[in-house]
Computed example of a mutant assay.
Amino acid sequence: MISHAMKELVQNSERVLIMGHKSPDMDAVGASIGILKIAQANQKEGNIVLDPDDIDTGVQRMIEEIEKDDELWSNFITPEDAMELVTNDTLLVVVDTHKPSLVMEEKLLTKTEHVVVIDHHRRAEEFISDPTLVYMEPYASSTAELVTELLEYQPKKLKLSMLEATALLSGIIVDTKAFTLRTGSRTFDAASYLRSKGADTVLVQKFMKEDIDVYVQRSRLIEKADIYREGIAISAGEHGEEYGPVIIAQAADTLLTMTGIVCSFVISERKDGRIGISARSLGDINVQVIMERMNGGGHLTNAATQLEDTTIEDARALLQDIIDEYFEGGDEE
């Protein structure tokens, strides 16, 4: 039903603009490419909004591979170009987020009345106003999984290329930590479909390679971890040491693989002056609830927040108080 509704919206629009969140990850980029294919399958021009100055190292290799494909890369435009193209007959599709403050170009939301939201995060208080269609499935592994399912019910006129299928599969693999977290039977169905369309798992591994200095930085954060409550690891960077959000998230992911750890939090100063916290859980502890109490959000097992006008020490103290309230107040659900 969602796929059919999406098809009608695309066909009734002048063009389709697609954007994910700021500093897009592989899930946001892969899902955007999937929506682009839906537009093309319905004979509509589509463009993906991407800020070339806001690309994290985690997705850089994927973007470099896309740049080699002239046909695919020609569909990527800057937020400035998107503002010139958008009209009230444009269909704007937002993927992998539903918060106006997090989208690639917030001004686009006010330029058209036709907005679709496709996301796998649990709905937060902040939400895009008056969307035409919302497809949110918090139990899905990734937005790429949801978009892949939509693709399967679209007209068969256009075929997924190897790179396009690989981009979607990359989003699923990254968000599930190689099919270990938030993975349901539909996740494997979507991955199987993409593999049948030529998705290259070796290329996915190439996308996920990392630099040695990034590995060392992450290890430095992991080294500072200690156990706060049983099974809960908290790591805090030093004052003056700035880490990007990807490294903070990767450190939290790595801590979760350690024996006895069921939940991890990594706190660090960010380059924008804020304090970033990345939270991960195996599922027994709802880190989304904890991060929401710190004005953040995310998913049951994967959440984060950014705090302004505070220090690492104060952020850690606040986090520990909220963790205590979570357990003592019976907020485990």
Rank of each mutant, 00 (worst) to 15 (best):
R229T: 13
R229A: 13
E230N: 15
I232V: 15
I232H: 04
I232D: 13
I234N: 10
I234D: 02
I234K: 12
I234A: 07
E238T: 02
E238D: 14
E238F: 05
H239R: 12
G240P: 09
G240N: 15
E241C: 00
E242Y: 13
Y243W: 00
Y243K: 02
Y243R: 07
G244H: 04
P245Q: 12
P245A: 02
P245V: 11
P245M: 02
V246T: 15
I247K: 01
I248H: 14
A249N: 10
Q250H: 13
A252S: 14
A252M: 10
D253T: 06
D253Q: 12
T254W: 08
L255P: 11
L255I: 05
L255S: 09
L256M: 12
T257V: 03
T257G: 08
T257Q: 15
G260Q: 09
I261T: 11
I261G: 13
C263V: 09
C263T: 15
C263H: 09
S264A: 14
S264W: 06
S264P: 13
F265Y: 13
F265R: 04
F265V: 06
F265S: 04
V266S: 07
I267A: 12
I267Y: 03
E269V: 04
R270E: 14
R270A: 07
R270G: 02
R270T: 08
R270K: 14
K271V: 00
D272R: 10
D272G: 08
G273P: 12
R274M: 13
I275E: 01
G276K: 12
G276C: 00
S278M: 02
A279E: 03
R280G: 11
R280M: 03
R280V: 04
R280I: 00
I285K: 06
I285E: 06
I285C: 01
N286K: 04
N286F: 00
V287M: 08
V287K: 01
V287W: 08
V289I: 12
I290S: 02
E292Y: 06
E292C: 04
R293P: 00
N295K: 14
N295D: 12
G297Q: 03
G298I: 01
H299D: 06
H299R: 02
L300S: 08
T301R: 14
N302K: 12
A303W: 07
A303Q: 10
A303L: 05
A303K: 07
A304D: 03
T305W: 01
T305V: 04
Q306A: 13
L307D: 05
L307T: 02
D309M: 04
D309W: 00
